[in-house]
Simulated scan of single mutants.
Amino acid sequence: MFALQILLFALVMVAIANEEDVHAELRSDYRKIDDQGHFNYGYEASNGVEAKVQGDVNGIQGEYFLPGENGKKIRVTYTADSTGFHPNVEKS
């Protein structure tokens, strides 16, 4: 399950990589996991990328924000479980 999160994070970062992103700094992040395998994870970067995810061994749900055109953010919410990855993209 954690490997899926790492893969998703890597894909997001590769998809939005540009010259400015090379110099992006992590503004905040948190990671929590309990003895039953429930977890929360999130971060915010100086380039406008944000992500939040929570879940357990049965599945995860989360959202991430990417900088869009003209300063507008793109929000992607998703769930991932035994039936696959289910994203929903919203442009504001």
Rank of each mutant, 00 (worst) to 15 (best):
M1F: 08
F2T: 02
F2M: 05
Q5C: 05
F9S: 13
F9Y: 12
A10Y: 05
L11D: 15
L11W: 09
M13A: 07
I16N: 13
E19N: 06
E19K: 06
D21Y: 01
A24V: 01
E25A: 08
E25M: 10
E25N: 06
L26C: 09
L26W: 07
R27Q: 08
R27S: 00
D29L: 13
D29A: 15
D29K: 13
Y30P: 01
Y30L: 05
Y30A: 10
K32I: 12
K32H: 14
I33Y: 01
D34M: 08
D34H: 09
Q36F: 02
N40I: 04
N40D: 11
Y41E: 12
G42V: 12
Y43H: 04
Y43Q: 00
E44D: 10
E44M: 06
E44Q: 10
A45I: 04
N47F: 07
G48C: 07
G48R: 01
G48S: 04
V49D: 01
E50S: 05
K52R: 13
K52S: 12
K52G: 09
V53H: 02
Q54I: 01
Q54D: 08
D56Q: 07
V57W: 02
N58Q: 08
G59I: 07
I60Q: 13
I60F: 15
I60K: 12
Q61D: 09
G62Q: 06
E63R: 12
F65P: 00
F65I: 08
L66V: 14
P67K: 01
G68K: 01
E69G: 08
E69R: 01
E69Y: 05
K72G: 03
K73D: 03
K73V: 07
K73Q: 10
R75E: 10
V76I: 15
V76Y: 00
T77V: 04
Y78Q: 09
Y78S: 10
T79K: 15
A80P: 00
A80G: 09
D81W: 10
S82Y: 13
S82I: 14
G84H: 13
G84N: 12
F85S: 03
F85I: 06
H86Q: 13
P87H: 04
N88Q: 11
V89C: 03
V89Y: 00
V89T: 14
E90F: 08
E90G: 00
